[in-house]
Amino acid sequence: MTKRITKKSEPETGHVEYWKPQSGWWYISAVISVLVALGVDTLVPDSQFVNTLPYRVFLEIFITTLIVLWVISFKANSLRKILYHQAQFIFAVGIALTVWDLLSTKSNILQLPFFPGPAQIISVIVSERETFLISSYYSLRLFSVGLILGTILGISTGILIGWYQQWYYWLFPILKVIGIIPSIAWIPIAVVVFPNSFIAGLFLIVIASWFPVAFMVSVGIASTPKVYYEAALTLGANERFLLTNVAIPNAVPDIFTGLTTATGFSFLTLIVSEMIGAKAGLGWYINWAKTWSAYDKVYASIVIMAIVFSIILAVLNSTRNYVLRWKKGISK
């Protein structure tokens, strides 16, 4: 077993070493394991009433993608490394899908409605695609408006607190006390105070993102090394220049740290607030599906959430890597 040893020179984030097998056998095994999943689904008779066509199409697309990527990778060595690195994992996914399919759709050991098989979940995603699209749209709208507002407020208050003593004196204690309250604790108040569920949800997400961003920005501003200010002053800087060209750039890595925390808090707040008050969105849908005992829809929503949130985090991460390309250890 190879332990994951973090070398001192290894960056905290960003660049990943592809240390997995160099040989192509695992990749071939991975393709075969997904083929087995497809074979099992096609050949073994169903013992549940499930539309397995979407699942089969999904597996076929999966296999085709794997093969196409493999062919491309003969020309692109970096892609080859990534594929081989992921091969064992894909192999395991293929096995897991096969076993799960056998246990549920094929043998009815895992029973509907509480434990649907992969075929059932994918078939629900396909048949309910419009609902999922609309729900994702509503969730994303609430999420992004809230996160953007919260971040703007967070950056502004963070700068004020980090830069001006007066603001620090008055706002920092408030930030410290209110900032540690989980935003969902405000739900009862938000529901009463705000005219509709969208505004209430917005308020909660703004709260969830504002404080971590404000806190990290103020820390980042206040921790600017004195020598940077002195260097700027001997180059002709005035107070304003020190803030805009020294302190704020110095705080940018902390802005991203705050933003990552804020994003996590906001996901939680988004789903919880939608579950409680809203008439739309993924959180609302999952709750609605639950009341109808439509557990296939619940699982499907969870899958959609995982996909949507992963995309958001990936976008955030690559933005961060681009903006912080000046930092040591961030790959270009």
């Binding site: 020598v227 940077y228 260097a231 001997t234 180059l235 220049f241 060209n245 750039p249 000046w326 930092k327």
Partner: peptide, 26 residues
């Protein structure tokens, strides 16, 4: 009165060129 510090004190978020341009910007 230009000053050069023992540890250079370049702004890490600026390129060589941008560091040199700082005085002009300021």
């Amino acid at each position: 009165r230009g000053f050069v510090f023992q540890q250079a004190a370049l702004f890490p978020w600026k390129t060589v060129e941008e560091n040199i341009a700082i005085g002009l910007k300021a």
